[in-house]
Every structure is written in C-alpha cells, then in structure tokens.
Amino acid sequence: IRCIGVSNRDFVEGMSGGTWVDVVLEHGGCVTVMAQDKPTVDIELVTTTVSNMAEVRSYCYEASISDMASDSRCPTQGEAYLDKQSDTQYVCKRTLVDRGWGNGCGLFGKGSLVTCAKFTCSKKMTGKSIQPENLEYRIMLSVHGSQHSGMIVNDTGYETDENRAKVEVTPNSPRAEATLGGFGSLGLDCEPRTGLDFSDLYYLTMNNKHWLVHKEWFHDIPLPWHAGADTGTPHWNNKEALVEFKDAHAKRQTVVVLGSQEGAVHTALAGALEAEMDGAKGKLFSGHLKCRLKMDKLRLKGVSYSLCTAAFTFTKVPAETLHGTVTVEVQYAGTDGPCKIPVQMAVDMQTLTPVGRLITANPVITESTENSKMMLELDPPFGDSYIVIGVGDKKITHHWHRSGSTIGKAFEATVRGAKRMAVLGDTAWDFGSVGGVFNSLGKGIHQIFGAAFKSLFGGMSWFSQILIGTLLVWLGLNTKNGSISLTCLALGGVMIFLSTAVSA
C-alpha cells in the first residue's frame, strides 16, 4: 500500500470489461488503480535517471590570480610587451599612462603600459546536455494484498515479495511487465516523455548541487567559461569578468580578483528545477510519464477462499488518510488461513446495510499462523458509518465519521480527471477507425466523469442509474429551450454510458 502517505494521489477506475487503462505517473504523486474483478494496485514513479550526459560548457565562479607582471614604455618608444601576453592562462590589459620627467621619461606624453596576471579557477559549475534516449524511469508497484503497516513504502525485498514489484522503462524499451506472483502480471506500455523539453534544458552542477536550467539563461551567464570537458589546462574565455584592473600608474597597475560568485548564482537559480546525482547518473524529480496498463493477466487472489471465522482485533486505531479513506490494521487469532476477511461498512448496526467501498479488493489472510496481521483500506461514505470486521458474535466494529460532501468530492474528481486527460493529450485517442474513435470517446468520458459518477451514484443499482439517464434524455427531447435540451441530452447520455461502463 504505497499511496496512503502521498498527498498527491489519483484514483483511476477501469471500465467494466476493459483490459487496459491509461494513467499519468508523476514525481511526488501516486496512482491507485481499481477495476472490477482485479486486485487494487498502487503505482508510483520513484526516480527518473539520466546517463551519458555530455559537458557543454563550464563557468568559473571563484578564481585566484598570481605571478603579476607589468612592462611600460616612454612616449615614442613603441608598445610595451610581455611574453605572458601569448599565454592563455594569463589575463592581460594594455593601456596608456601619462609619462614625463617625473617618472623617468625625457618627453612628456602618453606611454604604453601592459599588465598580466595568471588566472586560476578555484571553483566552477558545469552544464551538461541531456539526450531523451538516455532517460530511465523506475516504477514501483504494490498490490493491496496481505501486507501490514511495516511494509508500507518499503522498497527492500521486492524481489521475493509477490505484493510488490519494480520495473524500469526507457525510450528504447518502453514496454515492461511486472510479475506479482499469485496476482498474475501487469503489463506497462509507457510513452517516455517527461513533459520537459530537454532540447531547451541543461543539467547544471555547482558545488555538489544540481538544477535543470534553460539553455539561453545558461549561455548568457557573465562569467569566465570554457567549452567542452575539462582537459586539465582549460582555456578560459572572458577571464576579465572576475578580474579587475585598478587605476594605472606610470610603471605598474594593481590587479585584484573578485570574490566568489556562488551567492549571486544561487539567487539567479531561484525557482529552477532541482535535481540530484546518483553516482555518474543524474536524478530528476520533475515531469511525468504516461503509461497504458494492460490488466488482462491480472487476477484476484483468494476468490475461492472461505470466510475467516475466528476473532479479529484492531492492532491500531483506524486512521484517516490524506485522501479521506480509512486504513485499518487487524490481527487474526485463527489458524484456518488462508481465508477471506469479512469486512464491510454499514450505516447502522441493526440492518448492516453496506455503504462505501473497499479500496483493498478481496482482502485475505494468507498465513495459517496465529496472530497474522493484515492492513486494508476503505472508502467510507460522508457522515457517520460503522466499520464491521468478522462474522457472528466475534465481529468487531468501529464508529467512523467522514466530513465533507459527495458533491465536493465529485467536483474534485472531475477536475482531476480533466487534468489527466489534458496530460494524456492525443495519445488517449485513436482515429484509425470508426470503432477506435468511439472507443476513445468512451475512454475520455470515463477518465473525466467516472470518479464523479461513482461518488454521486455508486450506491444505486445499474438499472436505477439507466432509468435516471433515460429520464434526462426524455426531458431533453421534450424541452423547447435549446440549451436546457442539449444539457439534459448530454447528461442523460453520459449517465447511461457510465452506468453500463463503470464497474460497481
């Protein structure tokens, strides 16, 4: 259960009878995928790494000078000259100064003066180019299975845990398959586009800190620079940016070097996208990844198990997540596992009318040892309800109150669905055939309105939902006002479609 501690969480529900669903994975976010007769899966884009970055340009932001020398000439005696002028490691300046009897010249006039100092770069920052084909995306998957609280967001041991898996995709191999043991396998067909235009970005490294910066900004930095990788004795261009020549006297000129420019660069980098280094690879934390999940090989585990009949206890007080759902960790005293956990939410304890829904599909106890633990997640209705676990006299209950409203949740879900469709863009549509167009249209309606429909009408039977949709269509056909007619027709059509397409 990876997503319960992530604030940016998206719930995606598969269409009834569908074998695939489109998701948008982004750094700092987590996606929970639910479908009829399929286990619930949490998917998170953990890291995006980039390798084989080529150094484009380096800037010196802290330097020192040494070996200063000057040469001067009297008027009419030609130009002052130093051998160091031809050495690229030196920074030199030529000027004219007033000369006369007082400073060793027989004539009054302008004399030539040249001053040089050896330039040494102490600290530099480097910009590297990123090729999209060198990106690698690491995705962690977790099935809502027989897990306890100690396994949440624990990325170790996934090789031997059938509840978890790690997959890596690249532009050259965008397809992967996550093996989930008894739950089958989940196929991923990803489109490795981060949403960032790397043709316009460089990877900047300064003092063990890293950013993504725009090329134009990078090339306009007014500091000494050299092109390409460091060859040991780089040729620094624009050395004068960190060196200041003071007022010249008759035979000498003082040279000083400016202080470190790291603070000024940090100020200019305010708002830039931060990154990290992992050995020789860069780690990015921006952008998104679009994936199509193929769920035809994914299956529920323990459908044929019998119900657990022994007593359950709450190991922890049920807690609310950031998303309005409830996490419950229970301990089973029996030894008759594997068995299914009898769990439901009810409005009252007399009729036990089921409300809400299970995020953890078909929760089971897989071990036959005593005191096995299991964590599950529920989506309670707004208002008061009861969490009921167990059967008969051994069942345990917990009162729950959820604040908020169904309308607010439906609106929030619609906005999130619209954002998801905007990110998917043209990849969500198939114009290759008439059937493809209608299929894409259905998927689009489901992406945007599916979660809201589930919130508003999830407790009704599909037949009642179709009746309401048919009534809206009838009202649309018999209303003389054009805008009201079109609105009723659209709402009725969407409702009829979703009542037959969205899983219960």
Rank of each mutant, 00 (worst) to 15 (best):
H144Y: 13
E177S: 04
E240Y: 14
V56L: 00
T40R: 03
T309F: 07
S58V: 12
T233K: 14
M349Q: 03
P224V: 05
N362V: 02
M68Q: 04
T76R: 02
F457Y: 12
T479E: 01
A452I: 10
P132D: 14
R252G: 04
H288Q: 09
I65Q: 02
I407A: 04
T40Y: 06
I389A: 09
C60N: 07
L467Q: 03
K93I: 09
G482Q: 09
G450E: 06
C291A: 02
L424F: 12
K38N: 04
A319R: 02
M68S: 13
S483M: 08
T126S: 13
G442E: 08
T351F: 06
T321P: 03
E262G: 10
E177W: 12
V167W: 12
N52K: 02
V257H: 09
M295I: 08
T48W: 10
V328D: 03
G408C: 08
M34H: 12
D189P: 04
I407W: 11
G404R: 00
N154R: 06
S64G: 10
D161C: 00
I341K: 05
V473D: 02
I152E: 03
Q344A: 09
G392A: 15
G282F: 08
L486V: 15
G78M: 09
T120W: 07
E44G: 09
H210S: 01
G458L: 02
S483P: 06
E276D: 14
F218M: 11
W400Q: 07
I466W: 11
L242H: 05
G259V: 00
I396S: 13
K294C: 07
S485Y: 00
W225L: 04
T309W: 10
P318L: 12
T47R: 13
I65M: 13
H249Y: 12
E26C: 10
L284W: 14
M375F: 15
D426P: 12
N237A: 00
A413H: 13
T315H: 01
M374Y: 02
T126P: 00
C92F: 09
P380V: 03
A270F: 12
Q77A: 10
L269S: 07
G383S: 01
D230W: 13
V502K: 11
R357Y: 09
K93M: 10
T231F: 04
A504I: 12
D247A: 15
E162I: 05
T470S: 06
S51M: 12
F463N: 04
D430C: 09
P354C: 00
T406L: 01
G182Q: 15
S499Y: 10
Q89D: 12
A346Y: 13
K118R: 15
V143C: 05
G337C: 11
Y332S: 02
F312G: 04
D296Q: 13
A418Y: 08
E412S: 14
W429P: 05
G100H: 06
T427P: 01
K251L: 00
T335D: 13
T267D: 11
P75R: 01
H235C: 02
I139D: 06
A422R: 00
S7K: 00
D384A: 03
F457V: 09
E370G: 09
P354K: 13
N237S: 08
E191T: 04
S286I: 01
H249G: 05
E367Y: 01
K281Y: 00
K118S: 00
A63I: 10
E367V: 04
T40P: 01
G5S: 02
D98K: 09
A310L: 00
M460W: 09
G469M: 14
Y158Q: 01
I341V: 14
M277P: 04
K123D: 05
G14N: 07
T414L: 02
A413N: 01
L298N: 04
G184P: 05
L212V: 13
T366Y: 01
V41H: 03
Q253G: 05
S112I: 01
D189M: 10
T231L: 15
P381S: 05
V502M: 13
F431G: 01
D348T: 14
G102N: 05
P338N: 06
T95Q: 12
S142W: 07
I496N: 12
I359Q: 08
F411T: 05
L486G: 11
W20K: 04
L498R: 02
G356I: 04
C116Q: 08
G17C: 06
Q131R: 09
G78A: 02
V143D: 07
L376I: 06
T19V: 03
F285C: 07
S66N: 08
H219M: 09
N478W: 09
I407L: 10
F449I: 06
E13W: 10
H288C: 06
V24T: 03
S86I: 15
N362F: 06
S70V: 14
G442V: 14
N8E: 09
A35R: 01
N8F: 05
D430I: 05
D230I: 13
P318A: 03
P224D: 08
T231V: 12
A504C: 12
G356A: 02
K110M: 10
T313C: 14
E412W: 12
G392N: 11
A410Q: 07
H219E: 01
H398A: 00
D278M: 02
G195W: 06
R73G: 05
V326Q: 04
S70E: 05
R73M: 13
M495V: 15
H288K: 05
M345H: 09
L298W: 06
S7P: 14
C30V: 03
A270E: 11
R9S: 05
D155L: 00
L498M: 12
V41Q: 03
S66V: 14
H323V: 03
K394I: 13
P39K: 10
H235Y: 10
K443Y: 11
V364F: 15
D379Q: 05
F382N: 07
G302T: 01
T327M: 06
R402E: 04
A451E: 15
V213G: 09
G195V: 00
R9L: 02
I152W: 11
V355R: 01
A248L: 01
D430G: 04
F431P: 06
K373Y: 07
A275N: 02
G102T: 02
A227W: 02
S72I: 06
K297C: 02
G279C: 01
D155V: 09
V24F: 08
A346C: 04
T40E: 06
A272N: 14
Y59S: 02
M125Q: 04
S260N: 15
K316Q: 08
S51R: 05
S503I: 02
K290Q: 07
Q465A: 04
V143G: 03
G259R: 07
V169D: 13
Q253P: 01
Q131H: 05
L204D: 09
T40V: 04
G435I: 01
F119I: 07
A410L: 02
N103F: 07
I468C: 12
D10S: 00
V326E: 04
T233E: 01
G187W: 06
P174D: 09
H266I: 13
L424M: 14
I221F: 10
V41K: 04
K480H: 13
V326D: 05
L273F: 13
G408H: 12
H210I: 02
F438R: 00
S405V: 01
A80G: 15
G392D: 03
F453K: 12
L467P: 11
S199V: 04
P363C: 05
F438A: 07
L289N: 04
V303F: 08
A410H: 06
G390F: 06
T115M: 11
L25I: 11
N371I: 03
M15S: 00
D87A: 05
R252S: 06
N163Q: 12
L498E: 11
T313P: 00
G493Q: 09
N172G: 01
D230V: 14
